[in-house]
Design a protein around this nucleic acid. Structure first.
Lengths: 221, 221
DNA sequence: TAGATTGTTAATCGATTAACAATC
DNA sequence: TAGATTGTTAATCGATTAACAATC
């Protein structure tokens, strides 16, 4: 009766909740390695400097039910969160721009734990095309649309210079890409329904430097 | 009379505001290159898919005054935001962990525009110590405390594996580091007053995959 | 002048935190 | 049983959005 709107649509967790859930999995996995079977929100919160209340609220969104006094079954909590975040279904992704950052991401083997497998890289530089970085071949970016269509790729990682990022995005979206993970330091425009996730180093750095500045200033008072 | 609490302490802008300000500078710099002298919140908002209201609120925090109907002077707006974010004062930073990601960051020349200059890298791997990446020397991590103290370094970038990150952080904090930019996929604990900024790739990726999952699910209904 | 834009105060929205009953 | 922990509803807090007067 109540909440029938929510029961029709898939439940939408707040963005901050979704961002915290991965670290819960990290912590619980470590506990599992230590042989533990159950975990409480208090335990997770202590490990991550969060309140038990916040952890509980976050976990509630995944739909799992715990046992009062006992906590949550570690195995089923891991499975539930992974499922909730879409990590169980492995996504194949491509990366465009095999510069320093792009190559670093090709070499990062942690993504597979998060359901992401980078299968190919693309570049426009003839010196890079044909190379292999961490067993991933660099193809000519001219062939990217074709590759996306033929292999039904849904996720594209953008590590090209800011000046060409929008052009690449327009192309890959036209070819059927549904999610874009953008590392280029520029604002991108995508059509409705395409998911865009920006990795904004300047934004993070600004939080750091402005807080330092703040501290610096207040010391001089 | 009113707001006297705020006039004593430095004005604290909301975190989301601080994260958006760098992109305003980007946009305004481009306009300056096109020879324009004044910019309105509407202009900035259009360029970044934000509302003029939000842009105005953000800019208000920097303390600048604009002219109704005209907008803000581009030159003074750039200066004001840069000053507000602490970009005018160049900070020297060190980086620990010269793996793929660390090296990529050493090679990124965009940080200098944000007031950050990475001066040295540190590593524990004898094969890397002594190398130079992008004109930045890799020193033995055993000497890191000494280096921080002698050169009064205030910012440390962490690109080591998760398993050793906390140990490094404890050391550099003891040596006098005031701000930490953490790229290791783990939760770090720092003392009060030390600024910690986490770059959490798993969190961002989760937002992307879970939204794709959501879309995927709702299509099947 | 008229109208666009700023500056400022108020309303809304969403996330976090608190409170408390239910339960193993 | 007693007490810790979950589940759920309510209160608070902070950020965004809206409204509107001031002004070039």
């Amino acid at each position: 009766m109540k909440k029938n709107k929510l029961s029709v649509q898939p439940i939408m967790a707040p963005r901050p909740t979704i961002r915290r859930l991965p670290s819960y999995v990290n912590v619980i996995r470590k506990m599992k390695e230590r042989g533990e079977k159950y975990v409480s929100c208090t335990d997770i919160g202590e490990e991550l400097s969060l309140t038990a209340i916040q952890v509980r609220k976050d976990i509630e969104f995944t739909g799992i039910r715990g046992k009062p006094k006992v906590g949550y079954s570690i195995d089923s909590l891991i499975r539930t969160i992974e499922n909730f975040l879409g990590w169980n279904r492995m996504d194949e992704a491509i990366l465009v721009g095999s510069g320093n950052l792009g190559t670093a991401l090709l070499g990062y083997d942690g993504f597979s734990a998060y359901g992401l497998k980078i299968v190919k890289a693309f570049d426009s530089d003839p010196l890079r095309i044909g190379n292999q970085y961490f067993e991933k071949e660099v193809l000519d970016v001219a062939t990217i649309k074709e590759y996306i269509k033929e292999n039904q790729i849904k996720i594209c990682i953008i590590t090209v210079p800011a000046s060409v990022a929008q052009k690449i995005v327009d192309e890959v979206v036209k070819a059927g890409i549904r999610g874009i993970w953008n590392f280029a330091p520029t604002h991108l425009v995508v059509p409705d329904g395409i998911i865009l996730q920006n990795e904004n180093l300047a934004a993070s750095l600004s939080v750091l430097t402005s807080q330092l500045e703040l501290y610096h200033d207040s010391c001089q008072l």
